[in-house]
Design a protein around this nucleic acid. Structure first.
Lengths: 140, 140
DNA sequence: TTACTTTTGCAAATTTGTCGCAATTAATGC
DNA sequence: GCATTAATTGCGACAAATTTGCAAAAGTAA
């Protein structure tokens, strides 16, 4: 049986990349959290790796589709990609910041259809709903 | 009959904000373009206003929902909000940055349904497709 | 026009993301 | 294991993007 960690290492090796300490560290932090900003990620790594390295690692992880960026207004956060988490879209609470993953396969077909109507080749899509969770609604 | 410009001025006044030259200038530029980055916006304003002011104006416009940001991977662009343009989503080209608005009412119902399933009160949603436009596909 | 409040421009500080390069670490063949 | 080779890292310097304090200028209301 193969663990997520093994899948990750294999993915690196198969693409001609080394399995290094910084890469393992970043991956480990990501498996423990829903979605993190660069800031948060850097802080969680607590001096284990350099900031420039973090950016380079995330850049590589994106190419290999190990992670994705999700956008929240000005900012973005990093999270593990579908291969590792199995979901795609999000409901985010404007009150407390909670991110709830949602899985909506209907959107896949929808995306393809819209893209082809405009002669685009869609390589990714993003669907985000922002609002207030039950708890935050209760506070009002 | 009220113009977009009048609506805009009223919106500012009703919220206790002044109608100033910089604000008018930014609004005018935005009415003339689909979606602009801060860079582009600043350049279009050609020295009419300071960079810091631009950021402050955009911040205010966002609060008043005069504009919103649309996300393109790492980056974002500014565009007039639904009140002024009619609610829409986007197809963005990862090659050249072109933004094509799409209007998909199906998503409204969809959003409501998903939100209620999770006991969320949805206040806004965002649907973005990223890919390559016909021109950029041809370049490969 | 005056008196009062808000907004702006400027300059400086932060924050965020990049780059080149020498030192270090991982992978490979023995 | 050990040496060789290639990939990766950390560091310091940059560059770009965004924020802040404050005095001067512009907008508002009477």
């Amino acid at each position: 049986m193969s663990s997520q960690l093994d899948d990750f290492k294999e993915l690196l090796r198969n693409s001609g990349n080394s399995v290094t300490l910084p890469r393992l560290a970043v991956f480990e932090v990501l498996t423990k959290h829903e979605a993190l900003s660069m800031q948060e990620l850097y802080q969680r790594l607590a001096g284990q790796i350099d900031r420039a390295t973090l950016y380079r690692v995330i850049e590589l992880f994106e190419e290999l589709e190990i992670v994705h960026r999700i956008n929240l207004g000005w900012k973005y956060k990093i999270e593990l990609a579908e291969t590792f988490t199995g979901h795609h879209h999000h409901l985010t609470c404007l009150g407390c910041g909670t991110v709830v993953p949602i899985n909506e396969s209907k959107l896949e077909d929808f995306t393809k259809q819209v893209a082809s109507e405009h002669n685009f080749r869609a390589s990714r899509h993003q669907f985000e709903i922002q609002g207030y969770c039950a708890k935050c609604q209760a506070k009002d």
